[in-house]
Design a protein around this nucleic acid. Structure first.
Lengths: 209, 209
DNA sequence: AACAACTTGAACGAATTGTTCGGGAACGTC
DNA sequence: GACGTTCCCGAACAATTCGTTCAAGTTGTT
């Protein structure tokens, strides 16, 4: 249980801060290890004592950022409800508010955004997969869980990218609702669930006629 | 209009071929300009006479690759069929074959790959939107067409990325089938269809009545 | 055959990477 | 507050890779 040496903490903090500053100034690719240690006022030897490469430092930086893209655990009711869960709606409102802050990442203005996006994607996919596994523990599966999880995640992220990029007229509520319905349909398909509520009047009419 | 010198054509062809070969052997990142000119049997000076960087050479190669991402127009029957359309399956087989060639684009190893990906996405989204518009001309829409088109496209591309990245055990057929089912579910949701055959007749009846 | 355009190899400076030292400073512990 | 341990530093090193220059040779075009 030895605590990390303060010097170590300081050094890592300085390196991380320096990298983040430099990224916002010139982009990831244009930065060398030398640039980082210059900005951080740290010896280059020291850099390699803590990180084996620029990429590794970058990964350690965005732990905090990526970890904020956490999904609340979604229950079976949430997933199948006719209305989008309130957390989802508020998440989309938050996205719209933080648009200026997030668009550099989501729209690939920064060179390294694919990297971050991939991490966010992976994280979300794993979480969704876990949610699905517990929410639909019993029952036949027509589509592998990891495929489904990555489908749902990819669709959602892609749609958010598109939404942020084009200045479409849709409100966060519109989008959350649409995505929720589409995802619910996918989940129903995967677990072979029938519609219970709000059945199509079309089908009813036809059956009656 | 002056034709391009044959020597120029030959040189560029050799360089492109060499790069593609090397990509499939060790991946994009591990290749240097020197490697390319070695394989192509071309002077390094010559390389820089034609391309300013490895990325630029790669971009000159990608035209053929990207142009293969053309979707055949999908009919209503294709979209709602219980089996994935054969063109889709063969497209996924092709993807698997060209894996080494495509990874640099799909996994963002190349600087401009987000741009290329966006173009592919936009093109596919527009095509799908057009297909949907003609295939489901009449009938209620619960989800805006552009949202639906971008959802379907984003999900598909994201899933392909994931498939290429991880060495998952799924065959092209598996993936095509899964995606087809998920997308069919989304389309049914958007157009309020419950069962493919019955639903289409249902719509006909409604339209007729 | 003649001329222009292309290709070549060698060589160069510049940048970057990752590593090795020994001396010195800061830290946690007692 | 003293002491041993851990960490930081700077300089220097070899090894790559990059992009450019130049003179000389080779090939396509007309």
């Amino acid at each position: 249980m030895a605590k990390t040496d303060r010097r170590v903490q300081r050094t890592r903090e300085r390196l991380q801060r320096a990298l983040i500053e430099l990224i916002s100034e010139r982009g990831y690719d244009a930065i060398t290890v030398q640039d980082i240690v210059n900005r951080a006022n740290v010896g280059r030897t020291t850099f390699y004592l803590h990180y084996s490469s620029k990429d590794e430092l970058f990964m350690s930086c965005h732990e905090a950022v990526v970890s904020k893209f956490r999904l609340c655990p979604l229950s079976r009711e949430d997933l199948l409800s006719p209305e989008a869960p309130p957390e989802m709606v508020s998440a989309y409102r938050h996205l719209e508010d933080a648009r200026a802050l997030l668009s550099p990442i989501f729209l690939s203005y920064v060179k390294d955004s694919p990297l971050i996006l991939r991490r966010i994607h992976d994280r979300c996919a794993r979480q969704i997969e876990a949610c699905l596994r517990t929410a639909f523990a019993e029952g036949a599966i027509t589509i592998p869980l990891d495929v489904l999880a990555n489908y749902l995640t990819g669709a959602q992220i892609a749609l958010v990218q598109w939404w942020l990029e084009e200045h479409r007229p849709y409100t966060p509520e519109d989008l959350a609702q649409a995505i929720h319905h589409l995802q619910r349909a996918a989940i129903r398909e995967a677990f072979n669930l029938r519609d219970s509520n709000q059945a199509s009047r079309c089908f009813a009419e036809r059956a009656g006629g």
